[in-house]
């Protein structure tokens, strides 16, 4: 199954992922610009992505914990999600997300 990722520079990438992987892990595994410093514990918000609107309803809603962590994101939008909280599955095959500026690693941060 695949996800479509637009990076902070606007380049599009089609990434292959496996069932049960976190979307953050797929993006990190392919070497795109995502910091994900807590490693998937929903504790840092540095895997922040914007989900394409047409996909929003097909994802499980934000948990309270994710909502709390999004408070530490300075560039949050209606479509903001932490990509460590989205699990790959057939139901979201083709999911399209854009990497948020606040997810960029240090050396590349704006």
């Amino acid at each position: 199954m695949k996800i479509l990722v637009t990076d902070q520079m606007g380049a599009e990438h089609e990434l292959e992922g496996l069932e049960g992987w976190r979307v953050m892990e797929v993006i990190r595994d392919w070497g795109l610009n995502i910091k994900a410093e807590c490693g998937g514990a929903c504790s840092c918000a540095t895997c922040h992505v914007f989900v394409a609107e047409e996909w929003l309803d097909r994802l499980s809603p934000r948990t309270d914990e994710e909502e709390d962590m999004l408070d530490t994101v300075p560039d949050v939008r209606e479509t903001s999600r932490l990509s460590c909280q989205i699990l790959m599955s057939e139901a979201i095959d083709g999911l399209a997300v854009t990497l948020a500026p606040s997810a960029a690693r240090d050396d590349t941060a704006a």
Partner: peptide, 10 residues
């Protein structure tokens, strides 16, 4: 005063 938590920088 912005309080958005901490992040790690080298």
């Amino acid at each position: 005063m912005p309080f958005f938590g901490l992040t790690m920088k080298l």
